[in-house]
Structure formats: structure tokens, C-alpha cells
Amino acid sequence: MIIIIIATSFWAVALFAHAMLQPKFLRVQGIAPVPRLPLHLCRIVLPVLAAFLCCQLDLISGVLVWFGSASIAGLFASAFLTIMSVRAMKRPTLTNQPTKIA
């Protein structure tokens, strides 16, 4: 059980990093580009770590848990990104329109 939870967490962070590397996501989030190297590292290393953890189970269970935890982690990461983007949409943005001064 604990392996599934940790593998899911690793995958969630890795998928979040993957999303943050996509220009489209940054546009939707309305945030400036972030340093890419740590995100690349997360994207590559964490799934490998999750695979290493899953190897502690027997082979078939390990493979199934690795894929299954990736799917469920994707839901979590997507939910988090969606909340972030909804908040970004509600945030007041700078405009070039003149404002009335009292």
C-alpha cells in the first residue's frame, strides 16, 4: 500500500513538472517561465524512482502498479493544475486602460 502511495506521489510531481515545461500550460496559468533544469530532472528521475520502488513488489504487480499509479497521479496533477489555472483566471490583471483617480 505504502509503495502505491509513494509511487503515485512521485508520478504526480513528475507529471506536474512535465506540464510546467509546456508553454501552453504556462500561458493558461498566466505565470512566467520557470527554471527548466529542475523540472527536466523531476520529469526524468521521479518515474525511474517510482519504477525502482515498484520493483520491490513482484514483477507483474510492479508493472501494474507503476502504470496504475501514473494514471491516478495524472488525475491529481491535472486537478491541481486546474485549480491553479482557475485561480489565475480570477486574479486581477494589469491593463493599459486609464483608471479614474479620485
Partner: peptide, 11 residues
Amino acid sequence: ILTDLLLFRPF
């Protein structure tokens, strides 16, 4: 597939 993997725009 890879670029829009987690894209969800309820708004």
C-alpha cells in the same frame, strides 16, 4: 499527446 497530457479547461 505529450504537450496536452494534463490539459483540462473547465472555464
